[in-house]
Amino acid sequence: MSFLTSLGQGVIFLTTILGYFKRLDFSVNEVFEQIWKVTKESALMTSTAGFFVGAIMTIQFTLQLNEFGALGYLGGLATSGTVREIGPLLIAFMLSGKIGAYTSAELGTMRVTEQIDALKCLGADPIRELVVPRFLAIILSSFFLLGFGLVMSILGGVFMARIFGGISPEEYFRYVPQFVHLGSIVLSFLKCLLFAIILATNCSFFGFYASGGALGVGRAVVKTAVITMVGIVIADWITSQIADVILRTVVQS
């Protein structure tokens, strides 16, 4: 199946799901159940990943800033860089692995064992019953999990700054307000939201339309993970680019 055909079908799929959302045609209970499931599965992994990502960034920033004697800026710079860029990107990568793989595997298995066909024959709408709740749950959960991951990465940064750079938490946070302003936080939110939508759409789509038995499920998982990551990278670039353009326009005016 050509890339453009898949892309087109994916967009149609997304529009269909949003149609259900607009009509409020879904079970709220089911959404909450899915939110709980997704969060339970991913919380530990996200916080661990976030913590270490923050730690990694701090090490690198410490080494560089030390050379320039600008260690005081460590907290501000590391936090800003993590919140704006590295944090959403890497944590979204992790989530696309966990939630993306989990959901596409689940839906894919249901598809190849004919449960989705059975649903239709027994009077249920599989999109309403299976896809829409998962889609909404993934968006809400991953948004929350990304935020939580960012918080953990800040913690990781503080911890590493203490151990590696000898910077106390106080010193670390001193310049944060200066470096991390409202625009950065808005950017971070936008990225998280956009990444969540890409993730939710991809894993539902590839899982729901999986075919070819057990190996087909595996293939659906691979496709989900790869295309989600590519989508995230592109979305990351677009948002950063737009933010930069806005910033330059504002600065110039």
Partner: peptide, 30 residues
């Protein structure tokens, strides 16, 4: 066994590898 099993093992391997990569990246960076 089953379609379930393949999905699970694929998911788990992606998650476990990703997490280990981040952690080992930290360790090596240090």
């Amino acid at each position: 066994d089953g379609a379930d099993g393949v999905g699970n093992s694929t998911t788990n391997s992606v998650v476990c590898s990703s997490l280990l990569i981040i952690i080992v990246d930290f360790a090596l960076g240090y």
